[in-house]
Design a protein around this nucleic acid. Structure first.
Length: 188
DNA sequence: CGTTGGATTGGCT
DNA sequence: GCCAATCCAACGC
C-alpha cells in the first residue's frame, strides 16, 4: 500500500479558503503485526482511527511538538496505515513558507513533521475522510511506476527496522534526509 | 497516580 | 554529530 500513494496529491483547504497541495514522494508502511506500529498493542484511544475504515487520516502528536499524518489502509478492524513522510509542494508555497518559517521549498514538506506544519495538519484532522473530505483530501495524481520507486528500512524507529517498508520516488529532491543506517545509540 | 520515551526537528559543538 | 525542546500516550504500581 505504501508505494501506491507515491505520486498522489495531498490537498488542504484552510479556513480562509487558501488551497495547499503537495505531491507525495516518500511513505512508510505500518501494520498491526509490527512492533514498530502504534497499532501493535491493540486498539487504544489514540490508535482507534487506525482500526477504522481505510482512506481516513490518522494524525498523531509526538516529541511534544510535531504532528504526523497517515493514510489508514487496512479494512476496518485491521490496524494498518501508511505514514506520509515527504512531499513536493505544488500550490500555496507562500502560505507553507509562512507556517514553516523558511522559503526553501525543500524544507517545506520534506519530513513528516514538516509536512504537517506546512499544511496545517493537527489533531483536528485526525479521522477525516481523505476521499470525500473538503478540508483535507487525496487526489489521484500520477502513480509512480515500480521502476521509479526506491525501497529501504524505515526511519526513526528502534524495532522493526528489518522490514524494508520505506518507499520513495527514486532520485526525487524532495525526499527527506536519509539518516545513516547505524542505529546503535545508548541513552534515550 | 508516577515514569518513560517517542513513526522529529533545528540549533549548537 | 549530538542533544534539548515539550507534550502526552502507554504502562507499571
Amino acid at each position: 500500500m505504501g508505494p501506491d500513494l507515491l505520486g498522489r496529491i495531498l490537498a488542504r483547504r484552510l479556513g480562509d479558503g487558501t488551497l495547499l497541495t503537495a505531491r507525495i514522494v516518500e511513505t512508510e508502511a505500518y501494520q498491526q503485526d509490527d512492533p514498530a506500529s502504534h497499532s501493535y498493542r491493540g486498539r487504544t484511544n489514540r490508535t482507534e482511527v487506525m482500526f477504522g475504515p481505510p482512506g481516513h487520516a490518522y494524525v498523531y502528536f509526538t516529541y511534544g511538538m510535531h504532528h504526523c499524518v497517515n493514510v489508514v489502509t487496512g479494512s476496518s478492524g485491521e490496524g494498518s496505515a501508511v505514514l506520509l513522510r515527504a512531499a513536493e509542494p505544488l500550490e500555496g508555497l507562500e502560505e507553507m513558507a509562512r507556517r514553516r518559517g523558511t522559503d526553501d521549498p525543500r524544507a517545506l514538506c520534506s519530513g513528516p513533521g514538516r509536512l504537517c506544519q506546512a499544511m496545517g495538519i493537527a489533531r483536528n484532522e485526525n479521522g477525516v475522510d481523505l476521499v470525500r473530505g473538503r478540508e483535507l483530501w487525496l487526489l489521484e495524481g500520477s502513480p509512480v511506476p515500480a521502476s521509479g520507486i526506491g525501497v529501504g528500512p524505515r526511519v526513526g524507529i528502534t524495532s522493526g527496522t528489518e522490514r524494508p517498508w520505506r518507499f520513495s520516488v527514486r532520485g526525487d529532491r524532495y525526499v527527506s534526509r536519509v539518516r545513516p543506517a547505524e542505529p546503535v545509540r545508548g541513552s534515550r
